[in-house]
């Protein structure tokens, strides 16, 4: 039991961070506005969760310009993929 709990990732306890990871795992990349409408959150709220996931090294972003508008594309890193699947496995073990 302790072993399982250790595998549960604190970074994914939050609903919004869990949502961001779920969406990014199945897409090559998503931009800020798409994530915002998927999760139905405010700009500031989303930005702070994105930042914390990025700090953990789970996601990365690239900035580009469409015309004059900046467009930030987020994608999940290899480390994020591993951490996320570990987290899901831990949940499944916990529930089984």
């Amino acid at each position: 039991m302790k072993e399982i709990l250790k595998n549960l990732n604190k970074a994914f306890e939050n609903k919004i961070r869990l949502g961001i990871m779920s969406a990014l795992i199945v897409n090559d990349y998503l931009d800020f506005n798409t994530l915002k409408s998927l999760l139905d959150v405010t700009d500031g709220n989303l930005a702070s969760h994105l930042k914390s996931l990025e700090k953990s090294g789970y996601i990365k972003f690239s900035k580009e310009f469409i015309g004059r508008k900046p467009n930030t594309k987020y994608s999940v890193c290899e480390e994020g993929k591993i951490a996320f699947s570990k987290h899901i496995k831990a949940i499944e073990q916990l529930l089984s």
Binding site: S22, T34, I88, I91, L94, L95
Partner: peptide
């Protein structure tokens, strides 16, 4: 240990994966 929360989490993950892709 709150199992209900994790059942919900799994459901949310699946839903978000479908909805976003």
């Amino acid at each position: 240990m709150n199992k209900q929360k994790y059942i919900e989490d799994l459901r949310d993950i699946k839903q978000m994966m479908n909805r976003s892709s």
